Simulated assay, not measured.
Amino acid sequence: MTITQLQYVLAVAEHKNFTLAAEKSFVTQPTLSMQIQKLEEELDVLIFDRSKKPIQLTDVGEQIVEQAKNIVNESGRIKDIVEQQKGYIGGDFKVGIIPTIMPTLLPMFMNNFIKKYPKVNLIIEERTTEEIIRMVKSGQLDAAIAATPLNEDTIKEIVLYYEPFVAYVPENIAAFNKKEFDVKDLEANLNSVLLLQDGHCFRHNILNLCKAKGMDADSHFQIESGSFETLVKLVNEGLGMTLLPYLHTLDMNEKSKEKLRYFKDPKPSREVSLIYSKKDLKLHMIEALRNSITGVIKGAIAFQDVAITSPLERTKKRG
Rank of each mutant, 00 (worst) to 15 (best):
68 A>V: 08
68 A>I: 07
68 A>E: 04
71 I>T: 14
71 I>F: 01
72 V>G: 00
72 V>K: 00
73 N>V: 14
73 N>G: 06
74 E>G: 02
74 E>Y: 08
76 G>Q: 02
77 R>G: 03
77 R>K: 12
77 R>L: 11
78 I>L: 12
81 I>S: 07
83 E>W: 03
83 E>M: 11
84 Q>S: 03
85 Q>F: 03
85 Q>I: 14
86 K>Q: 10
87 G>V: 15
87 G>I: 15
89 I>D: 00
90 G>M: 12
91 G>K: 01
93 F>R: 00
94 K>A: 10
96 G>P: 12
97 I>S: 03
98 I>D: 08
98 I>Y: 10
98 I>L: 12
98 I>K: 07
98 I>S: 05
99 P>N: 07
99 P>T: 12
99 P>L: 06
100 T>R: 02
100 T>G: 01
101 I>D: 01
101 I>E: 04
102 M>A: 12
103 P>A: 05
104 T>K: 04
104 T>F: 07
104 T>S: 08
105 L>I: 15
105 L>C: 11
106 L>Y: 14
106 L>E: 11
108 M>T: 13
109 F>N: 09
109 F>L: 10
111 N>T: 15
111 N>V: 12
112 N>I: 10
112 N>C: 03
113 F>I: 13
113 F>W: 09
114 I>Q: 06
114 I>K: 09
114 I>G: 01
114 I>H: 01
116 K>M: 11
116 K>Y: 09
116 K>T: 15
117 Y>V: 13
119 K>L: 07
119 K>V: 05
120 V>D: 01
121 N>V: 15
123 I>L: 09
124 I>P: 04
125 E>T: 15
125 E>D: 13
125 E>P: 02
125 E>K: 13
126 E>K: 14
128 T>A: 02
129 T>Q: 11
131 E>W: 09
131 E>C: 04
132 I>D: 05
132 I>A: 01
134 R>C: 01
134 R>W: 01
135 M>E: 13
135 M>W: 04
136 V>M: 02
137 K>I: 14
138 S>K: 09
138 S>V: 07
139 G>C: 12
139 G>P: 05
140 Q>G: 09
140 Q>E: 12
142 D>M: 09
144 A>P: 09
145 I>G: 08
145 I>T: 15
145 I>Q: 04
147 A>G: 11
148 T>A: 07
148 T>L: 02
148 T>Y: 12
148 T>I: 09
149 P>V: 15
149 P>K: 05
151 N>I: 15
152 E>C: 07
152 E>A: 00
152 E>W: 02
154 T>A: 05
159 V>E: 03
160 L>Q: 04
161 Y>Q: 07
161 Y>C: 09
